[in-house]
Amino acid sequence: MVYIWNDPSEVPADFGPSVVTFGNFDGVHRGHQQVLSQLIRSARLTRSKAVAVTFDPHPAFVHRPESAPEMIMGLDDKLEALGELGLDAILVVKYSLDLASLTAEEFVEQYLVDCLHASHVVIGHDARFGRGNSGDLDTMKALGEKFGFEVQVISEFGSEGYPLHDDDGADRRCSSTWVREALQEGDVATAAAVLGRWHRMRGEVVHGAARGRALGFPTANLASNASGLIPADGIYAGWLVDQAGKRWPAAISVGSNPTFDGVSRQVEAHVIDRPKEAVEDFDLYGQTVVVEFVARFGGWWPIVGLKHWWTR
């Protein structure tokens, strides 16, 4: 069981000792996984609790909302991905100007020491924290000596045994930026390689044009507020996971539609593994579903073509 706390006041007073790291963890990609797996290993060796501190919203939405990056995943999916790694607890800290005003020492003392009773803090070489990003690795080591915790430095690169390369064949550090670049180009295969799993979106199914249903394929149109970064326009093979956890092979259409306010992006998942006579009883409206992107196809692939691709 993973404990998820949305405020420091929810952390039991007797919790700990803990091995802690902190970050945004957008995407929970292989670099994040490498850091967290070593954190968990350290926690088990020292009989401590393995804890990740993450922030919501992303700091960029507070400091520079006009240029904030698109989030790879929503908070629910991030917490699910973090929890699957084997952490004991996750503390979600509301990011605000008040939090940003804390000095590096105040942040460490209030959240890592007083709240989580950290015996070890795991960070990367380039970690920055505290007001104006004034805290760095040397700051954390000094604070460790002051408050009595050890600092473990981990290089976040890829995943052990899975070197990743960019288009030029050079090693590239796993990053949320790389995932965003790949998705914006529709390269869901590269995104999956960096993430260590298929990219996903999560949202409520709403009524749409029902073009797929007219052809004999149930269609799930994701609401405009669905979480997860929308890949480039195109046709994708993927999966639809319904509210009960059932996985269905799907042809996913991503398209841009002009509106009075600009351009909207629409994601439609057409389930391709249902008998035609059973289409009408396949009702997902109002359900929250997950759509996973496996492969992109060039040009227009009819749904029947994707059904053949999935079953070949």
Rank of each mutant, 00 (worst) to 15 (best):
D56E: 15
R197E: 08
A278E: 12
S119M: 07
Y236D: 04
W178S: 12
R44Q: 13
L79N: 05
A209T: 13
R197T: 03
A251C: 04
L229W: 04
K246D: 14
R30I: 15
L36G: 09
E150I: 01
V294D: 15
H58Y: 09
V153A: 00
E80N: 12
G228W: 01
L143G: 02
A220R: 02
S37R: 13
V254I: 15
P69I: 05
D166H: 11
W309I: 07
G158D: 14
T190H: 10
V304N: 09
L137Y: 00
S264R: 13
Q34F: 11
L164M: 12
W300Q: 12
A244S: 15
D281C: 04
C174S: 14
H58I: 03
H58R: 11
V11P: 01
S155N: 12
G31H: 08
S176P: 06
G31W: 06
E145T: 11
A50C: 05
R173G: 06
H207T: 11
V51L: 10
A191D: 04
V20T: 13
I303G: 01
D77S: 10
R173I: 09
I123N: 02
G135Y: 00
G158K: 08
E10T: 10
G286C: 05
E106R: 08
V279G: 03
W198Q: 13
V206K: 02
E185N: 13
R312M: 06
S119A: 15
T103S: 14
A170N: 15
V93L: 09
F61S: 12
S134V: 00
T46C: 02
M201H: 03
Q287C: 06
F260M: 09
T54D: 09
G212S: 09
D7Q: 11
P218G: 07
V241K: 14
A223R: 03
S9E: 14
A278M: 03
L195M: 12
N24H: 05
A250M: 01
A118N: 07
W301K: 07
V19F: 05
V35M: 14
